[in-house]
Amino acid sequence: MNVMTQRPNVLAPDLEDLVNEHETSVFEVRDLTASYGATPAIENVSLDIFDKKITAVIGPSGCGKSTFIRCFNRMNDLVAGAHVGGKIFYRGEDLYAEDVDAVEVRRRIGMVFQQPNPFPKSIYDNVAFGLRVNRMTDHLDDRVEKALQDAALWDEVKRKIKDPASALSGGQQQRLCIARALATNPDVLLMDEPCSALDPIATTKIEDLMHELKADYTIVIVTHNMQQAARVSDLTAFFSVEGSAETDRSPRGVLVEYDTTEQIFTAPNDRRTEDYITGRFG
């Protein structure tokens, strides 16, 4: 791994252990800063995302969790005035290098949004969408079926695959969106509060699904629900808001602590993390 040496090594000492323990980093985030126009969103975030693990990003609202994961598939490019500084290396390659194509990035790094957003098309066409866009149209039926099976939705929809996706329940729609993202065999799955619009039963189904998906995918999930982070993730990153009007620095999100989920929820190192997970704040 001579690539490693070429990049600045800014990980905290305890994270060094994590790096050694897990070996393969899918993403290496170094001094990441993002802002919208003059408004900063996150500042100086450095961490690694590890292969075939579920990493949860938690923190109070306004701490830049969503902004943070949208840096991984360059969705922030689509926001006028958004600026991303610092570096993200994806499997050793600078994601924000001049000649990297954001569209190619998104073909490898799938995303599921907070609100289920199926297209106003049939269930089949929704799953086939990414395949068609990426010209993976050989064995299209098989690929669609496989994706729906992976998303644990096949049995529920196999008899009405040509029905409009809008006829599905919210939870089914969200699993459809997961199937849609899985269909193109992405490397990473980004999930931006995927259960916040769902009822508890639908939420459980998605969480179960995530456990199964972990075998094949690296997952990064943003959640405002600490129990969910504790239930599903291997690693947890806690973000907080720093700066305020009184300190004449506008508020921005910072990474407070990043560790195994167990560590974060049982013996956090930082006072702010402890306050947050014990409910004294946020």
Partner: peptide, 25 residues
């Protein structure tokens, strides 16, 4: 909805593909 455009582009559609495959219909 803007979520249709974002959804399409998150799947690797180019802006043009997102427009003529999801927005226009």
């Amino acid at each position: 909805p803007r979520s249709h455009r974002l959804g399409a582009m998150a799947l690797g559609a180019t802006k043009l593909e997102a427009v003529y495959k999801t927005v226009l219909p």
